[in-house]
Amino acid sequence: MTKSEQSKGKGKMLEIRNLHAKVGGTPILRGINLTIHPGEIHAIMGPNGSGKSTLASVLAGRENYEVTEGEVLFNGKNLLALSPEDRAREGIFLAFQYPIEIPGVSNINFLRTALNEIRQYKGQEPIEAKEFLALVKEKQKLVEFDAKLANRSVNEGFSGGEKKRNEIFQMAMLEPKFAILDETDSGLDIDALRIVANGVNKLKNDKNAFLVITHYQRLLDYIVPDFVHVLYNGRIVKSGTKELALELEEKGYDWVKAEVDGVSA
């Protein structure tokens, strides 16, 4: 499908058009185009510093990222005009590459507040205490997240792997329409990786979509993407199917870099 065919098609979830963004005055994203439909899993790969986390941050609405050109539509709405919380309430979720610790804020209590604020945004009643506890239990099981961790302060004293699993647990709790996983696989051993991937696969349906940012092909053995994109120097320089990931695994990024740098040189 060409880009113009896609944009004519129905049921687009996310549409990124010619997105440029600066951080601290430096251009980092330099013209990103990407369209994602419900039910799809997209993977973004690319060398360190190519702008993957920047893209995730811009989509989630982090301040200090200045969008200088382009637009992003989420279910037809101008995403960039929304506050971070309204983006979350519209169904966007970002599993952070580096989840922070928030001492004194209980994981469960804050999730409940967040969930209720999302429900209120949608015009729904707050969740009943009993229903909430049942939901916590179900999702803990789904992503094999220790109940003790769920009740502690957000990520306080968690290991790297536990923090990543907490991100997936929160994702499972909030059931977003569109989830961005920013290197959720890095720092995970193979068992944890399988658990995280299982979680995603169980949550996946034909109404939601995932953008999986990763360095390694190994995650894509478990979460099978429909599309793989290579981000380099703030642009998507190559797109393909899961075979592209295998090729990158085998040959590294140098050939992609060479192609791009060769063309632009």
Partner: peptide, 21 residues
């Protein structure tokens, strides 16, 4: 930002952090 990215409004996120503090 972390709390807002989960759907909490800015005011309630700040209040929660003050409460935690």
């Amino acid at each position: 930002f972390y709390l807002r990215a989960r759907g909490m409004g800015e005011q309630s996120a700040r209040a929660l952090l003050v409460e935690a503090f």
